[in-house]
Simulated assay, not measured.
Amino acid sequence: MSVLERITVNPRQCGGRPCIRGMRIRVSDILDLLGAGAGPDDILRDYPDLEREDISAALLWAARYVDHPRLSA
């Protein structure tokens, strides 16, 4: 499984926002926790269904998202 395959989007779940492996844990939840100073071990302790690779996938997804070119007319 590619790391980014851990990120799923389902229009019927979480308003279509990217989630981790079909769970109701959004990529933005992981990023918010990291941004607030939580470390990967803290997140894994609070969310036992997550795996370390899920956190890596969320970070990689975010990096790719913000690096997406935008065209202006």
Rank of each mutant, 00 (worst) to 15 (best):
S2M: 09
A62F: 04
Y65V: 05
R12N: 14
H68V: 05
I7C: 03
C14D: 05
A63L: 10
Y47D: 00
D46V: 06
L50A: 08
Y47I: 01
S28W: 10
G37K: 02
L31Y: 03
H68I: 02
A36Q: 07
G16N: 09
P69G: 04
R70N: 04
L71M: 05
A62E: 14
T8V: 02
R21I: 04
A62S: 14
P48C: 10
H68P: 00
C19M: 11
D54I: 05
D49C: 11
V3M: 11
P48L: 09
R21G: 07
N10D: 15
L4Y: 06
A73H: 12
R45G: 01
P40A: 06
R64A: 11
E53I: 14
R45E: 08
R24I: 01
D46P: 00
L4K: 03
L31N: 02
D54H: 13
G22R: 03
G35R: 12
E5Y: 02
S72E: 14
D32I: 03
V66E: 10
R6H: 11
V9P: 00
W61S: 02
L4C: 02
R21A: 12
M1C: 00
R21K: 10
G16R: 13
L4S: 11
S72R: 15
A38V: 01
Q13C: 07
I55L: 15
E5P: 01
L31S: 07
P69I: 09
R45I: 01
D67Q: 13
